[in-house]
């Protein structure tokens, strides 16, 4: 066992796969000797060298184009897009090229690649370096979308993403990079498309991902003191989506709350709410409630950003109001 930060877990997960498979390469801006701007790749350049861990220019289309071309010709690249907001400058490669090409070519090509990216707010970086974009990726047929919430899941889901034969968008909550947990030694491999029940309760079910998981767990503790005992489901992977776990846990409590960092409109929770409404309508004891960032660009000032992103107190307040209303 070792105490590992979320950011150290990224490097450990990648290193585990690079040792195992020489076709795994990593490219991105400042990921080599510098170890990444978020220090997510520290030690990889030293261990695997500059051919396998390679710095690129600030050319996001080139980075993702290169990953796609490499994946279609037998390699398993991991590409880093420093901030997920920057997907906007290379979204064509993701959406039109990577995601569609297997289908368009009638299965002639596969794209075993991972695109990692620092996602979400909490660091006071302002609107162009803070958005949660998991709903962008989730809407695109042909992309898998993984959003881990802790160091152990980072390692196992990274391994699963690298081994997966399809393109995986791996979104790392920037607000979690410094968080720590005990992680076992040895190889860790997880499964895409499996949600985890991280707290078991009887009153209501909170479904959440990424940086909202620890906040939802903290909120659940405060709610428990008020007599509202919540289940918390960490979805972990939006595509493929473990709908069965969500349906089972919502059915058990009769209430669904989603806690989402993405802006409100068509956030990932909207799809889950729709599935639950269609398939579990008669098991619900009250309305589905989505707790999200409002439909605004994120402000930079700490006071404002804290008001925008769902906080522990807002989660407690909204669930409490709805449960008592």
């Amino acid at each position: 066992m070792a105490q590992l930060t979320f950011r150290e877990a990224i490097a450990r997960g990648i290193a585990q796969e690079m040792r195992r498979d020489e076709s795994v390469l990593m490219i991105g801006e400042d990921i080599g000797a510098a170890g990444g701007v978020f220090k997510g790749t520290v030690g990889l350049f030293e261990e695997f060298g500059g051919i396998r861990v390679r710095d690129t220019p600030i050319s996001e289309q080139a980075i993702l184009g290169a990953a796609m071309g490499a994946a279609m010709t037998g390699l398993r690249p991991i590409a880093e897009i420093m901030f997920s907001d920057f997907f906007a400058v290379c979204w064509d490669i993701v959406v039109n090229e990577i995601a569609k090409s297997r289908y368009m070519t009638n299965g002639q090509m596969t794209f075993p690649l991972v695109i990692r990216s620092g996602n979400g707010g909490g660091l006071r970086f302002g609107a162009q370096h803070s958005q949660s974009v998991e709903n962008w990726a989730m809407q695109v047929p042909g992309l898998k979308v993984v959003v881990p919430s802790n160091a152990l899941d980072v390692i196992g889901l990274m391994a699963a993403a690298v081994r997966d034969p399809d393109p995986v968008i791996f979104l790392e909550a920037k607000a979690l990079y410094a968080t720590k947990m005990e992680v076992p030694d040895g190889e860790i491999v997880d499964t895409l498309g499996s949600a985890k029940v991280v707290r078991k309760g009887s009153s209501a079910t909170i479904v959440t991902i990424g940086a909202m998981v620890p906040r939802s767990l903290a909120a659940a503790e405060e709610l428990a003191a008020q007599g509202i005992d919540c289940t918390v489901v960490d979805v972990r992977s939006l595509i493929p989506l473990d709908t069965q776990t969500i349906l089972r846990e919502v059915s058990a409590t009769g209430r669904l709350f989603t806690v989402e960092e993405n802006p409100r409109v068509l956030g990932w929770g909207a799809e889950i709410s729709s599935i639950v409404a269609e398939e579990l309508f008669y098991d619900l004891d009250g309305p589905i409630v989505r707790i999200t960032t409002p439909h605004i660009p994120l402000p930079a000032a700490d006071a404002l950003e804290d008001m925008a992103i769902p906080s522990v107190s807002r989660i407690v307040e909204e669930i409490s109001r709805s449960m008592n209303g």
Partner: peptide, 22 residues
């Protein structure tokens, strides 16, 4: 024939990727 691409310019970076792989 590793694809015909209909978004202008998109396939130049992708060709770089295949070349990088080679």
């Amino acid at each position: 024939v590793m694809g015909s691409y209909a978004i202008i310019g998109a396939h130049l970076p992708i060709a770089c990727g295949a070349a990088w792989s080679a």
